[in-house]
Amino acid sequence: MPNMNRRTLLAGAAATGALAASAYVAAEDKISVDHDMSGKSVLITGCSTGFGRLAAEKFARQGAKVFATMRNLPRAEADELRVLALNEKLDLQVIEIDVTSDSQVESGVQQALAATGGTLDVLINNAGTSYGGPIEIQDMEATQHLFDVNVFGPHRMARAVLPAMRKAKSGLIINVTSQLGRVIVPAYAQYSPTKFALEAMSEQLAYELVPHGIDVNIIEPGGYPTMIWKNSNENSLALLERAEEKHTAGYQALIAQLGGRTGGGSTDPMDVPNAMAEIIAMPAGTRPLRREVHPGAKPQMAINKVSSEVQVGWLGGSPYGPWIKAVHNS
């Protein structure tokens, strides 16, 4: 992405707003794939399948030192990655991290830092989960699980890596949210609330880390055919089995959708690792705060543009102004 910074991305969002509501593949959707990542150390959560697995393989093949993390080791997906790394002579190490575990987050990050001599260039918070259904039927077990994985997990990971990044005065944290972190579809349970929370936490971190030379980027994918749909269906059906009739009675039509949702169609999940690679390749301080990723509709673009303008207009002249303007490249 030549000469791309936050300001030009925001200008591009305004220019292409009419296209965002269609399935047209615009120029900004054609993500380049060739980036030399030699010398970069990258830790990725949620690497058993989906975006995390694809990113781990791609970045290692492009020369990065990759720490591919996942929960519940030993497991076949970890063995597959280890065999791949051995066969292709990739610098890829599998580490067990369940992002809901304080102890595993701390020990896993320390293991990665020990392997790099105490530095880490990039953290990618990719691990996530989903449920479906109206808000009323979401019990506290489901709600706490969603927030623990989707919000508290990235928080734990950021706290674990930031002392080393601040010491190095450099680093990049990429948090994977969703279109549904800025717009809302009914009956997607607490998924949007968790992704809205991660969006807010990411933006606040971005401001606070400006003095430390650390960038934060938010990747906002649309629908892609990954395992999140199958996992969401399983979570939703388990929730329905324990739900009380007094909560489900008013939502027959919405509940009928649960357990069979699919998404993404023929879209290519590699779009997301390719977008991450572009962000990583950009010079520090020029990276966009948000990157919308989908070949079709990106309804959050208009919201992102207005949000940026409001933040700069509200706080640009305050003592926080230099941080706000640096993040929005204003």
Rank of each mutant, 00 (worst) to 15 (best):
T177P: 06
Q190I: 11
K246C: 01
V216K: 03
T194A: 03
F196V: 06
A243P: 02
M201T: 09
I184L: 15
H212Q: 04
S202W: 01
F196D: 07
G250M: 10
E245G: 08
S232P: 00
I219T: 05
A197F: 11
I184G: 15
Q204W: 12
P211M: 03
E208K: 14
M227Q: 12
A253T: 12
T226P: 01
V176H: 01
E203S: 13
W229C: 10
L258W: 07
L198C: 11
S232C: 10
V216A: 04
V216Y: 02
I174D: 02
S236E: 01
E241K: 15
Q252K: 14
Y224G: 02
G223C: 08
Q204F: 13
I228D: 08
N217M: 08
L205T: 01
Y188R: 13
A164D: 04
V185T: 14
A197I: 12
S202F: 03
Q190P: 02
K195E: 03
A249M: 09
S192H: 08
G259E: 07
T226H: 08
A243M: 00
K195C: 11
Y207A: 08
M227W: 04
Q257V: 02
L205E: 05
E245S: 11
L205S: 02
A206R: 04
E244R: 12
M227Y: 03
Q252Y: 05
A164N: 04
T248Y: 08
Q204R: 15
M201P: 04
I228E: 03
P211I: 04
V185N: 14
E203W: 04
P193E: 06
I214Y: 04
R242G: 04
E244V: 13
A200G: 15
T226R: 07
L239C: 04
N233E: 01
N175Q: 02
E203Y: 04
L258T: 08
I228S: 09
S202R: 07
M227G: 02
G222T: 10
G250D: 05
P186C: 10
E241C: 07
I214P: 06
R166G: 05
A189S: 15
I255M: 11
P221Y: 06
T248A: 09
I214R: 01
E244W: 02
A197H: 09
L205K: 00
V183W: 13
Y251T: 08
P211F: 04
L258N: 11
M165T: 06
A253D: 15
G213F: 01
G222S: 06
I214T: 05
Y251C: 03
G181S: 12
L239N: 09
K230E: 12
K169S: 11
P211C: 00
I214M: 00
G223K: 05
G223M: 09
Q257Y: 06
A197C: 11
G222H: 05
F196A: 07
L237H: 08
Y188N: 12
E203D: 11
E244A: 13
